[in-house]
């Protein structure tokens, strides 16, 4: 049975790229998608997926707030954060809050070396 994933990113382009990667490469089932942190919290409660992929910078509620809310109720939640700012305080804070790993933008899924790296990070996050 394939793993379930929820993808939350406010960019349609990034969402499509992530969805393609998780369905075609990781062979996950994308059970839901969202565009902001509020939706991330609601969707996580509804589906309780194996993995949540969460953009950090989003409108309404950002990824950090969503991660904090989800981890408060579900400490074992597996969450991978996505960000273009790899040295940022937000990324550091997300790791402190319990994110299991991160994927940096641009999403270089067309590069074999990055594809393998991200596969490893995702699999590690699920352990």
């Amino acid at each position: 049975m394939s793993k379930s994933v929820i993808i939350v990113d406010d960019s349609i382009f990034a969402m499509r790229t992530l969805t393609d990667f998780f369905t075609e490469v990781m062979e996950f089932e994308v059970v839901a998608t969202g565009e902001n942190g509020t939706e991330a919290v609601e969707l996580y409660e509804k589906y309780k997926p194996d993995l949540l992929v969460l953009d950090l910078i989003m409108p309404v509620m950002d990824g950090i707030e969503a991660l904090e809310a989800i981890k408060k109720c579900h400490p074992d939640a597996s969450v991978i954060v996505v960000t273009a700012m790899r040295d940022s305080e937000e990324l550091q804070k997300s790791i402190e809050l319990g994110a299991s790993g991160y994927i940096e933008k641009p999403l270089r899924f067309n590069k074999p070396e990055y594809k393998e790296l991200f596969k490893k990070r995702i699999n590690d996050a699920l352990k």
Binding site: S11, T83, A84, M85, R86, D87, E104, K105, P106
Partner: peptide, 9 residues
């Protein structure tokens, strides 16, 4: 967004 991220790296 990605371009600025790359620059910052």
């Amino acid at each position: 967004n990605n371009y600025c991220g790359l620059l910052s790296s």
